[in-house]
Design a protein around this nucleic acid. Structure first.
Lengths: 119, 119
DNA sequence: TATACTTATGAACAGATGTTCATATGTTAA
DNA sequence: TTAACATATGAACATCTGTTCATAAGTATA
């Protein structure tokens, strides 16, 4: 049996009502890709570390680099990603740029993740 | 000034107390990598779609494949990833293997993510 | 303005990731 | 047991991703 160019089994198609139901309750594709992209941002140890550091203090780029033992460039690149996802905000303070967490979602998200792996 | 093989600025090192504080409050590296890995699993649209489908019904592999319009192989590979992260569980039912969500963490995590992108 | 300092960015490279294809494994029914 | 069905898996391939290196852009001080 061929449906939408994809070959599927016959017995399973007995569940076609379930298939239909699931398809109907699916959020729009754009939303699904957006959430996936958001999680992708959390899906890197360096970025998680940066977020943890910023939970303690507002911090400049080179301080973060020092805490993590990484280059300024690497941190700056990652901060750009975090900015684009609106997970961190920033303000200029003289020569430095001070980064901090955008809102409480970051706390909540990470806490939720930690909870899962600690079970 | 050189610290730990990484060059850092001098002015920023005025914040060395903040640096020290942040470093002290950092969870162990293993935990950080584990959370990142968990988020990485959520960081793919196909896997997000699979999880959404499983919110509605317990489902077999080829039904999921049909809903998403993807090959059985692609879905099976992704289900393996989801199993390894304990996000889905499964049981055999005759020839089929029925997959379902492991626990409520999945709901909570995705809801949290959705909330963030909808702001 | 000139210099030093802090951050941002583009290109390049290596390693990771998702899908496909072919096929193996496992289950049921004839 | 044999045939048909459902799922799992390994290898290969193209794409994506994170870091490095070099350097540009922006800011403050002499």
């Amino acid at each position: 049996m061929i449906i939408d160019e994809v070959e599927v089994c016959d017995d399973c198609c007995v569940h076609s009502d379930a298939v239909k139901n699931a398809a109907d309750h699916m959020p729009p594709d754009a939303a699904l890709y957006s959430v996936a992209d958001l999680f992708k941002v959390f899906g890197d140890a360096t970025r998680i570390k940066i977020l943890y550091v910023l939970m303690e203090n507002e911090m400049c780029v080179c301080d973060i680099a020092e805490v993590l033992g990484m280059t300024q460039s690497a941190i700056s690149h990652q901060l750009k990603t975090l900015k684009q996802s609106r997970l961190v905000k920033f303000r200029r303070d003289g020569k430095s740029v001070l980064y901090s967490l955008s809102d409480d979602h970051v706390h909540t998200m990470i806490a939720q993740g930690m909870e899962h792996i600690c079970e």
